[in-house]
Write a protein that binds this DNA or RNA. Sequence first.
DNA 1: TCACAAATATGAGGATTATTCATCTTTTTC
DNA 2: GAAAAAGATGAATAATCCTCATATTTGTGA
Lengths: 206, 206
Amino acid sequence: MSDAAAARRKPTQARALERVERILAAASDLIAETGSDAVKMTEVAERAGVPIGSLYQYFPDKAAILQTLAERIAERVRGGIAESLAGVETRNDALARMDRLLEDYYALFLTEPVVRDIWSGTQSDKKLQELDITDSRANARVVAEALKHLVPRKERARFETVCFLTMQLTGAAVRLAIAVDRKEGDRLMAEYRRLLRGEVGGFLSG
Amino acid sequence: MSDAAAARRKPTQARALERVERILAAASDLIAETGSDAVKMTEVAERAGVPIGSLYQYFPDKAAILQTLAERIAERVRGGIAESLAGVETRNDALARMDRLLEDYYALFLTEPVVRDIWSGTQSDKKLQELDITDSRANARVVAEALKHLVPRKERARFETVCFLTMQLTGAAVRLAIAVDRKEGDRLMAEYRRLLRGEVGGFLSG
DNA sequence: TCACAAATATGAGGATTATTCATCTTTTTC
DNA sequence: GAAAAAGATGAATAATCCTCATATTTGTGA
């Protein structure tokens, strides 16, 4: 049922800001230890050294804490994409950098339990699913922008659509790869890399 | 925490079998009406016309009901794949049938609220995620088997891996397509169809 | 047909957790 | 330095899942 969760105070004082960070850090640690489903609000409060009421001062519900963590991860990833694709010049250069990005993204999921937990079961709630899609759109725009001078003018609109689709497919590929054993995961990622090169490479000239 | 949910009785008497069906039908209806998260066990019991205890006689927990519904959908889909690809002869024939399958799969998600609900947020729980992967493997085997005479002998092992990956990517593409508005969804599916033809077509000769 | 075992049915109540809110304290503002 | 705004607190409430002791029905062998 839940109507839109009630809006909460946005912290302005230094004390409150620090508190919010402590809450997020505690949540992050606990997620890494036990998985987000198993994390209890009382545990987060205890670990953060704040009373339970403080969580609800700044987060309307448990999901909101996860969403905030998810957003931060997403921003970090987007930054990495922008950085990695900056100043790309040739088609081969673009493809090599994409390989690298894919590798890094896979590694991120392999090594960071919180990323794995939060984005593994993407769509456990509506808001996270929306965030995932919004985020893919934003990433697609970044990629399309960085590569647009390599894409024929008349293909550019389609190219952004393809990038958008590709972001989602990449998420699916990585989630699959980390869900199976490492060896098979590597093999699947190798196939996906090939697929991606073919798909994106098809648009690039130069 | 939850240890493996305790095993439950498997119904053998006609009365019990019918009850289980009533429970599943009630759950399915309610999911279609309100989404699985909002469905309460007491509501399922009431709608099915059985006391709450009966749900737990045959299902260890709420998730198990969803899983059973998910399995049935998955079987139905697998049957459709096998049927659609039976007796395929040429490369073009294979590609045309794949287009058709993709179309049907998209339509299934567009029109059936229960499919949409259960498989939209795949991975809301571990068991469903495992089921999804197991199921993709099984579908991949069906596809690889149906098309194997069109695939060069030495590529066949890789081809099954690609099919497996493809099943997951297809799920992601369809979930994305139904999450955005219809027009954009159609456009994304068109791009995905092209991608799929390229990827699978690359393996097929004849 | 009867007695006994196995399966099935029942629903009040226990258990777990997320979340609220009335009240108190600290910080900011003017 | 007083009023207003922001922040802090945690016992109590609320929402649900799920259990279990007990009662009933069905199957089975003699």
